[in-house]
Amino acid sequence: MNIDVTAMPATIDLLHVSLVTMTLIFFILFLIKSKRKIPDATEISESPAVAEPLAEPLAEPLAEPLAEHVTEPLTTSQLKKTSPDSALQLLALLQQEARFIDFIQEDLLDYSDADIGAAARVVHEGGQKVLKEYFSLAAVREEQEESRISLPDGFDATAIRLTGNVIGQAPYTGTLVHRGWKATEVKLPKLVEGHDVSIIAPAEVGL
């Protein structure tokens, strides 16, 4: 698992914003696969299911494995393959409500910012509707960003990532850089057995 975090984009443009959106979506999918219903952060810390190392959908560097899991013998069979069904279902919902795929597949170079702005509203409005309707999201930490917080021993390393001068013993005191997001509930529609999820949007023929 080697990801070059130094390869950051020099400028932030719409394409990268879109990539980040994709990243977020895959992260959400990862959460769905891990656990259908995740009540709150404290429970996350006790849930071994979430702590399972899971590679592909995460484009960000993973946290160091939890201390209690290091003592357990790791076997390669712990990597599980994610089913594409929920991923395709979410893409279908985003396409349906937010024209997500239409938007990402366009070449932005040919258009003015006004055109892109108008389309971005469609994507944003629809995307927000999808997030609201199918997920309950909450911040991992409720404190103000840029404020100092203290982490006790045994904090959940999946929910909280230490960066920078990571040395010493708990409790750790540091600045809350990003408050994080967690899905507290996932309410995706149930799929009928045998439904072809690979059709993200059917072709439409007007008669």
Binding site: D115, A119, R121
Partner: peptide, 18 residues
């Protein structure tokens, strides 16, 4: 509040009314 109406086809840019 802006009101946007996307076009019907897969082409979103340029076909969206605002």
């Amino acid at each position: 509040v802006p009101i946007v109406i996307p076009g019907r086809g897969a082409k979103l840019l340029g076909a969206t009314l605002r």
